[in-house]
Design a protein around this nucleic acid. Structure first.
Lengths: 194, 194
DNA sequence: GTCTATACGCTGATAGAC
DNA sequence: GTCTATCAGCGTATAGAC
């Protein structure tokens, strides 16, 4: 599909997913419209529907793309220390904040969770599960090798992190980037209590 | 206005605000419609518009009502210890989780922050500021009297709390109530590190 | 793959009678 | 204060030509 475009670099389909993700993270799934993507790509509404017949199809593709990118990221860093691995996650969120992405995928989906079409709910659950289970493993690994010194369970600590990061990204819109930096500083401390 | 209704108990206007808050916390501001309120009160769409001509007017009223309720709550507990005061906040959120309220007002507003009408943005900012400044004071008070033993600044710790609580409420929809309890347990520990 | 054109439903909102 | 009636606008989605 779209062979010539693929050869040139990025297919229209991939551009749509990328733009869809950008818009969803900036204004949320409900506020994002196909027209925004069409305008950006200088095509028409109907052309976007050619790739993703229903909006929820694109929604699922965006979630899965972001999950896939995350898996690539952790695969690339699998030889790093636990501390470095947690920094990957924190840096990812710091970049969201700095680049005007007001929501992560977790926040974008859970803030409208009760309204999600079944396929999107399923994709969101898998997405969250992926990050959570990875984080639990990283925390446990760091605890066992002595790099981390927290006293709570890796499960509970991971639960706090995947709640705090989406929440802080949202609240930082009202309180500013300094607010978010303070939260990051705090999360780092939870790994090494005095 | 609506004197006879007020005498009977609760005015239609107050019922609309209460229902508006319920719906906003369950399905979010964008998904909530006047028709849902009208149906619940056995009146028509136009009747709701009589009290709140524009949807954002009701949005503002809901935020201010929730802020007012919170102020009443902390006024009632002003003689409590810092520890008891923090429990008031945690219990409030635990009740959200248990009563099917998927979003707090902070989460409901910050998840669509970039799309908020100016008046709602202002109301949201005041709301967040109210909770944040109260919490900072409580944390500082508890630290000074020795009830809390955290090592970070009250400002940063408060920032974490008002990010974590809205975030955890959202994510708990996907992970279940046990997830939320784990987060609460963890937050309590941050006041008393080992 | 992209277009024009259009249908459709829904929601916010208004006018005016009662 | 509540109603009936109605509207305009928007967003999703489709049909069919090119």
């Amino acid at each position: 599909m779209a062979v010539h475009n693929t050869i040139q670099g990025v297919s229209t389909r991939d551009k749509i997913i990328k733009l869809g993700r950008d818009f969803i993270q900036k204004i949320g799934y409900h506020s994002f419209r196909y027209q925004l993507i069409a305008k950006e790509l200088n095509i028409k509404n109907a052309a976007v529907h050619h790739y993703f017949p229903a909006k929820e199809d694109l929604g699922v593709a965006v979630i899965e793309k972001d999950r896939s990118d995350f898996l690539d990221l952790i695969e690339a860093g699998k030889e790093q220390s636990p501390r470095e691995k947690t920094e990957v996650l924190l840096t990812m969120y710091a970049n969201y904040c700095l680049s005007g992405k007001n929501l992560c995928i977790i926040g974008a989906t859970t803030s409208i969770y009760s309204e999600l079409p079944p396929k999107m709910e399923k994709a969101a659950n898998e997405y969250i599960e992926t990050i959570e289970s990875w984080l639990i493993d990283v925390l446990r690994e760091g605890h066992q090798n002595g790099e981390f010194r927290f006293e709570e369970t890796p499960e509970n600590l991971a639960a706090v992190w995947i709640s705090t990061l989406p929440g802080a990204l949202q609240v930082a819109q009202a309180k500013g980037a300094g607010f978010f930096r303070g939260v990051l500083e705090q999360l780092r401390r939870t790994l090494l209590p005095a």
